[in-house]
């Protein structure tokens, strides 16, 4: 491994300052992804700034009924938090669908948001990847791409965002608190991730060296009726073949509000605004849900191996919303 220096910052400002001063520095939180990538030579930082001891490890209930989750709150703690379980079950379920118990004990909220794609070509320095090595090409486009994107990909990159948690946060309209040398600002989760476009190496809208310090969830009473469903090749410890996060608010039979987001389809958690629009204000029916999912997927461009994601996504959308609507699926 490339030798690196280790810095334990006194506070957030110190952490941000080190990152600003060092061209090749990285924040170390749970290390569940970064350390692997360092061993593989995919990431080669000069300095690790260990944010684990910064006071960012609490979950606070906000006066408006929302929740503020510190960036270093572990995935396992967040999943088990009583308020999360009660008010945002979609988040607990997404967290518990991810990784393994050991990894969840280490992985943090901020780190989970910034984890890198598991595209096999990205993780292998002997093969072409524009995300890892801009200009080298995208080996996945015409290669092994079963697990990769069907929406919003570019010729330069067909990677997917691997996070389950981020899909849940997408339906919750989460806001990410970010510190940089200019201070703190809010970034809506919807604005956090970029499309791959011509620059897949730029994954987020964060400035270099910016530190996620917290994630805020607005009050959302409807989220008490929410869930997350993940389809995967084995029963645990596998990334999603398809996943859906959903919040459903019914007024009798009529869909008063609905929020849907998909994992495993794109470079970002895919909030299904179009499907939501097709559903909102209409009487609930599984057929309507299927049509709405199809509308969302109308722009999809499956790769050579991943056409299955379209029927899978449609199917799990119907299952999840039918479940939330209290209807057994036929």
């Amino acid at each position: 491994m490339k030798p690196f220096r280790y810095h334990r910052p006194a506070d957030v400002a110190d952490a941000v300052a080190v990152l600003a001063a060092e061209p090749q520095a990285a924040y170390l939180a749970g290390g569940t992804n970064l350390v692997d990538l360092m061993k593989l030579g995919v990431q080669r930082p000069d300095v690790l700034v260990d944010v684990n001891r910064l006071p960012l490890d609490t979950v606070e209930e906000l006066p408006d009924g929302g929740l503020r989750i510190g960036a270093t709150v572990r995935n396992s703690h967040l999943a088990a938090h009583p308020t999360v379980r009660r008010d945002y079950p979609v988040l607990t379920r997404a967290l518990l669908a991810a990784a393994s118990g050991q990894l969840r004990n280490m992985a943090t909220t901020g780190g989970n948001l910034l984890q890198r794609t598991r595209c096999p070509y990205f993780q292998d320095t002997s093969k072409a990847c524009n995300k890892r090595d801009p200009g080298s090409g995208c080996a996945a486009l015409h290669g092994v791409n079963r697990d990769l994107a069907v929406l919003d990909w570019s010729e330069q990159c067909v990677a997917t965002n691997p996070s389950d948690m981020a899909v849940a946060l997408a339906v919750l309209d989460a806001v990410v608190e970010v510190h940089d040398t200019d201070g703190v600002r809010d970034v809506p989760l919807a604005d956090l991730y970029r499309s791959p476009g011509a620059h897949p190496e730029r994954e987020t809208t964060l400035a270099r060296g910016a530190l996620i310090t917290a994630v805020r969830l607005p009050a959302l009473p409807a989220a008490r009726r929410s869930t997350y469903l993940k389809a995967r090749d084995r029963a645990s410890f596998a990334f999603a073949a398809g996943s859906v996060a959903a919040v459903l608010d019914l007024d009798g039979d009529v869909i008063r509000d609905v929020r849907l987001a998909y994992g495993a389809l794109a470079h970002r958690p895919w909030r299904a605004y179009r499907a939501e629009q097709e559903l909102r204000g209409h009487p609930f029916s599984p057929e309507l849900v299927a049509r709405a999912a199809d509308a969302e997927l109308a722009e999809a461009r499956p790769l050579s191996e991943n056409g299955f994601k379209l029927p899978l996504t449609r199917s799990i959308t119907v299952r999840v919303l039918s479940g939330l609507a209290g209807r057994a699926q036929s």
Partner: peptide, 25 residues
């Protein structure tokens, strides 16, 4: 093993991408 003929190599070569049955299965 998922093989990429262009590289003459498997692309899944760790236990994160080459799945073996887990206890939960």
């Amino acid at each position: 093993g998922l093989f990429d003929e262009r590289y003459g190599d498997w692309v899944n070569h760790d236990l994160g991408t080459y799945h073996i049955t887990a206890c939960a299965d």
